[in-house]
Amino acid sequence: MTNSAIALLRASLIAIFLGALLAQTLILPLLVAESVSIHPEVAYLATPYRWVVTAGIICLQVALACIWILLSKVQRQRIFENSSLRWVTTIICASAIATFLVLGLGFHLLSIVGAGGPGVFLMVAGTVAFGSAATWLLVVMRNLLASAIGLEAEMRAVI
């Protein structure tokens, strides 16, 4: 991977991380306040829902930090080490947790509270489908990395 590609990826990771931080600290509180003013009958859900969304954003931030670390390993040509698997596993866990948070929040909102409509259902279903697919893709990629690590170790033993 070229240094320019790594620099562009790092710039993208920084931009996404800062955008998530902005959403977490400024945008989310404004959206919650606006939602409470529009729908005061569900104001009691504002704080727990805000914490669930914040937890989902934290999952994204953890995954971005792990990608940064893996990118550093690629740059140093040390990606085929067992320690890389730990970072990929952390990304998988963050993705799975975020997906379950969306599923739980959507289930609670649609089934228990009885709020939202077809649009909310479609958004939750699409997000859960995408999150599940991404998580399973990461599991496959982790298994491929584990195989590559094993093959490289065998090649080093032969050489």
Score class of each variant (00 low, 15 high):
G114L: 03
I67M: 15
R10M: 06
G116A: 06
V158C: 04
L64Q: 03
P118E: 14
L101F: 10
A5Y: 12
S132Q: 04
I14C: 10
V32Y: 00
A129R: 03
L145P: 06
F17D: 10
F121S: 00
T54L: 10
Q77S: 14
L105R: 09
A46G: 07
A157F: 09
G19R: 12
L71T: 15
L60V: 15
I6M: 05
Q61R: 11
A115N: 07
I97A: 09
G126R: 02
L60F: 09
S72T: 06
V32A: 07
L28A: 10
L64R: 03
A134P: 00
T90A: 13
V42W: 11
T99G: 05
V42I: 15
E41T: 05
S111E: 05
L26R: 09
V124Y: 01
L60A: 11
L105P: 01
L70W: 08
F80W: 13
T135V: 11
S111F: 02
F121T: 00
S95V: 01
A115P: 00
M155K: 14
L70P: 08
I6L: 11
W68I: 02
T54N: 14
R156M: 11
F100Q: 12
N143E: 12
L9K: 04
I92F: 06
L21W: 14
L9V: 04
S132V: 08
V62C: 07
G131T: 05
I67P: 03
F107P: 00
A20L: 14
G104I: 03
I16Q: 02
G106W: 00
I69Y: 13
Q77Y: 08
A129P: 02
E41K: 02
C93K: 08
L64G: 07
L31Y: 05
F100K: 01
I57N: 04
R78W: 01
L71H: 00
I69N: 11
A46L: 08
L60W: 08
V42M: 03
I69F: 07
L110A: 02
L105I: 00
T135R: 07
V52S: 09
A23Q: 11
E81K: 13
T90N: 02
Q77C: 08
L101P: 09
R86G: 02
G117T: 03
N82S: 11
G56W: 03
S12Q: 15
A65H: 03
L21P: 01
P40N: 13
I69C: 03
L145C: 10
